[in-house]
Design a protein around this nucleic acid. Structure first.
Ligand SMILES: [Mn+2]
Ligand SMILES: [Mn+2]
Ligand SMILES: [Mn+2]
Ligand SMILES: [Mn+2]
Lengths: 222, 222
DNA sequence: GATAACATTTAGGGCAGCCTAAAAATATAT
DNA sequence: ATATATTTTTAGGCTGCCCTAAATGTTATC
């Protein structure tokens, strides 16, 4: 069974919004915002996806993926992240340039292709933004990282990912000399605006607004 | 300006059929056969493509690409052939496995991607089936090869391409040990059925039906 | 030049995926 | 508990791309 690009994008959007509202299902408005279209259009599509047993949908109650729908969503994410890694590792794109292209490539249909691609780029477990790449069975390697803004203490941290993938944010990090794997030492916490004074890789002093710190995912170094 | 996958496929089909009827334009029936849909649907789309200045279309007179339409068609073909080459050279696909995947990949929109891909695979001038890959300006390196069936003489030939890309034909060639770049010595021409007895690479004796010989593109070796 | 065969277009319609406006359900505030 | 705000669905409609059946144009044949 094959699905349209539109259907795949709905599944992916539902999957990505699923953990925000950890109680019930994903809302129609939320989805329409994520997908950049109108709520009425979403309702329309939800009926069709339910028909195809990809989601469980009850009027006014929000939507959750069936296991079939979830498998498919994870597969799209797997393809997206493998292609992003390919673009960065093999074609020398920068991490802020790959998302839009991967949005297209994630819909190419061929299991053989994606498995060979994975092998070609050396079976990476994380993509250029630090996001885990599910294996062909849909298993993720999660890191227990948190936003830097949730640590209210000085200390040494390791940058493992970002929770905001916009070009402008990624370019900002690049401009302050920060990339995945870098060490971040928090020297000062400013109580007034919750901003940070940090040292990157032991030599580069920078200031992070709370907004920046909230999109930087780190683990505390022992 | 961006075009739909469907529109791109029409442009490519028109381009590929263009040289058959070297006099006038491409016919509606021809196109419907190539695109696996009905003539009425083709008429419908031709009106839209004409509206967008991609083709010149006059009722009942057939269709020709405008220079804008031709540039686009060549770009799609360029992408198709570069992706096929990538799949064979980097991901170890066989030449009979790549066409369907490239049919999808040829519609990915990113000039930067296709130029980097070209460089990554070493700026090849021909794809895995011997077809010339246009450069980023749309220039082809044509080989003046002809079907083996058009040479009515014994002699030494070099296989430069194939004019039939079906899986079954390509697998047949593989099974007789023939690939691009091989030498073919014609030992006997059978006048009764226009079949050929040949020696491949000086040691492998095979028989080609006229049908096979008509899809093998060769140049005569001096 | 009339007629038959073939190619092409027109007419009318379906489905996917989107829209706006209005109605209905649910959540929030007083 | 009622009024108000917010979310969601329904109703009706549009565009792109496809279809079948019927009409029309073109080409071939006698
Ligand atoms: Mn991305
Ligand atoms: Mn990513
Ligand atoms: Mn091909
Ligand atoms: Mn090819």
């Amino acid at each position: 069974m094959q699905f349209s690009v539109t259907e795949e994008n709905y599944l992916k959007a539902i999957y990505m919004l699923r953990e925000n509202n950890d109680g019930g299902g994903v809302g129609t408005n939320e989805l329409s915002q994520q997908l950049q279209n109108k709520a009425a259009s979403v309702t329309d599509m939800l009926k069709r996806l339910a028909e195809k047993k990809l989601i469980n949908y009850q009027k006014y109650k929000g939507v959750v993926l069936t296991s079939r729908g979830e498998k498919l969503a994870i597969k799209i994410i797997r393809k997206h992240r493998l292609w992003e890694t390919f673009l960065v590792e093999k074609l020398s794109f920068k991490w802020d340039e790959v998302h839009e292209i991967a949005e297209q490539l994630e819909h190419i249909q061929s299991d053989e292709l994606i498995n060979r691609l994975e092998n070609f780029i050396g079976n990476p477990r994380f993509d250029p933004h630090g996001d885990p790449i599910p294996d062909s069975k849909g298993q993720f390697n999660f890191l227990k990282s948190k936003p830097l803004s949730q640590f209210n203490q000085k200390g040494n941290y390791l940058l493992t990912g970002v929770s905001e993938h916009s070009k402008s944010f990624l370019q900002h990090l690049t401009s302050v000399g920060l990339k995945i794997g870098d060490s971040i030492k928090v020297d000062e916490l400013n109580a007034f605006d919750n901003s940070y004074k940090v040292t990157i890789n032991k030599k580069n002093i920078q200031f992070f607004s709370n907004k920046v710190a909230s999109h930087i995912l780190v683990v505390l170094k022992k």
